[in-house]
Simulated scan of single mutants.
Amino acid sequence: MKTRLKILTLTVSALVSCSAFAADYPMTVTDITGRSITLDHQPENIALGTARNFPLLEIVYGKNAGKHLVAMRDDMKNSAPSMYDIYLKRYPSLAKAHTIGKISKGQFDAEAFINMKPKPDVLIIGLDSAKKAQSTGLIRKLDAAGIQVITADFRDKTIENTLNSVTTVATALGQE
């Protein structure tokens, strides 16, 4: 188990030094649920179904992570305030990010999200939210509005899904 964790840590650490590459759009990626997502342009405005996934944006964008975040849940601010304070000092723009509700609990306001300025290009969600978003038609609704939903998993099957989640999101966002 320790060996797997070391390999995972080294792999994710290597991804931290990722650089931009010339991505061709439209592009289709497959997320960890097996769903194909087609992006017609390079996403710039990113929303997070859970603020605790902000480190993913750091992996993908490095020092520019805060520049791309337009919305997130307030879970980090409420449940891990010291973590939020650290990120807020490093990325003051987090304070301007719109707050969204929890999808899996039915607290997400799709209309407000779709009409948000700037409009999100991508919403990154976890497995629990993906199940609810699929069953309620939220994914279909957001897709029709031009907002792509990508499922990433860092909680349920951490070892199995982390590398694939990071790689899929990085590729979709035009990063290598």
Rank of each mutant, 00 (worst) to 15 (best):
G101W: 01
R73S: 15
I124Q: 04
A133H: 02
L69T: 09
S82K: 14
A144S: 15
A112F: 00
D128E: 15
K131A: 11
A144G: 10
Q107A: 13
A95L: 06
E111L: 10
D74F: 03
A130L: 00
K89W: 01
R140M: 10
P81A: 09
F108T: 03
A145H: 08
R73A: 12
A144I: 07
A130T: 01
K117W: 03
G66E: 12
I103T: 00
V122E: 08
D85L: 09
P81W: 08
T136E: 15
P92V: 10
H98M: 03
F113S: 00
K63Y: 03
L123K: 01
I124V: 13
P81L: 09
D128R: 15
I125E: 07
P81V: 09
A80G: 10
L127P: 07
K131E: 08
Y84F: 14
M76C: 11
I139K: 06
S93M: 13
Q134W: 04
H98L: 03
M116T: 12
S82H: 14
P92T: 09
D121Q: 09
S82M: 12
S93V: 13
G106I: 02
Y87E: 12
A130Q: 01
G126L: 11
G146R: 07
K131R: 07
K77L: 14
D109K: 12
S82N: 15
R73D: 13
N115W: 04
D74C: 04
R73Y: 08
T136P: 05
I100T: 03
R90I: 04
G66R: 11
G137F: 13
F108Y: 06
Y87N: 08
K67M: 10
M72G: 04
A144C: 07
K131D: 05
L94N: 00
I125K: 02
P120M: 06
M76E: 09
A110D: 14
D75Q: 04
K119N: 02
L88H: 11
T136A: 10
I139H: 00
I139L: 04
K96P: 00
L142Y: 02
L69D: 10
A112G: 11
Q107V: 00
T136W: 11
P120Y: 05
K89Y: 06
A110I: 11
K77Y: 15
A95M: 03
G106W: 03
A95V: 04
V70I: 13
G101L: 02
A97Q: 04
N115P: 01
V122Q: 07
N115A: 13
D143C: 05
S129D: 15
L94K: 03
I125M: 08
G101I: 05
I86Q: 14
L69Q: 08
I124T: 10
K63C: 00
E111W: 04
T99C: 04
G126P: 06
I125H: 05
Q134V: 09
P118F: 02
